[in-house]
Amino acid sequence: MDSVILKTAIRFLFPLLLLSSVFLFLRGHNEPGGGFVGGLVASGAIALYAMTHDVAAARRVLRVSPRVLIGSGLLTALCSGLAPLALGRPFLTGLWINVRSDGMGKIHLGTPLLFDLGVYCVVTGVSLVFVFSLLEE
């Protein structure tokens, strides 16, 4: 697609869409949102970039193969489920730790966030495999 308006708009929309994707991801394990919605927004941003430029440029921006994203996302989600087994708890039981940070105060991290990260990677990877294969035809 060779639209000057879309190419100009994507320069401003691309970072905003990725930022909103990260916001949805981080908000999701406590409120609506999460890995699935964040992954869809991220893949939508990269798909728009691929439509305005080309698939090769979008692959360079992504820096990693979508298939690698799928595999690493599945592995991350699996590890978040296996971590409680090491402590004698059931599969996918939530575990949390509190981390103190000078700038942000007390941060509450846990395995649900790790699971959401896996879902984020899988959804982004699967969506981009579909989009890239359709745009390359």
Rank of each mutant, 00 (worst) to 15 (best):
R27Q: 08
V119F: 00
A9F: 01
E31F: 12
T111C: 05
V119P: 07
I97L: 14
L87R: 02
L85V: 05
G73E: 12
V129R: 06
L117P: 09
L82R: 14
S72K: 00
L48H: 08
G73Y: 14
F12L: 07
G81V: 04
A86W: 06
E31D: 02
G103M: 10
F23K: 03
L13V: 06
V4S: 06
C121T: 08
L117D: 10
V131N: 11
G105F: 01
F91A: 10
P90N: 02
D2S: 12
E137Q: 04
R89F: 15
V131S: 13
A45I: 02
V22E: 00
D54W: 13
A56Q: 14
V131Q: 14
S3C: 13
V68Y: 09
Y120I: 07
S20I: 11
G110A: 13
E136M: 12
T8Y: 03
L78K: 01
T76R: 04
A50N: 13
E137L: 09
A47F: 00
G81N: 04
L18I: 15
L24M: 11
G33Y: 15
S21C: 06
Y120M: 07
T111F: 05
L135G: 07
Y120C: 01
G105E: 03
S43P: 04
R60M: 13
G105D: 01
R27I: 11
V4H: 06
E31Q: 05
N30Q: 15
A57W: 09
L75E: 12
G28W: 07
P84A: 11
C121G: 10
C79E: 01
I70H: 14
C79N: 02
F12N: 04
G103H: 06
V64S: 11
T93S: 15
V131K: 03
A50M: 05
V123Q: 14
L75A: 15
H108F: 00
T52I: 13
G94A: 13
R67C: 09
L40N: 03
S127K: 13
S3M: 09
L18F: 03
R67Q: 15
L128H: 05
S21L: 02
G39N: 08
I97P: 08
G125K: 05
R67D: 15
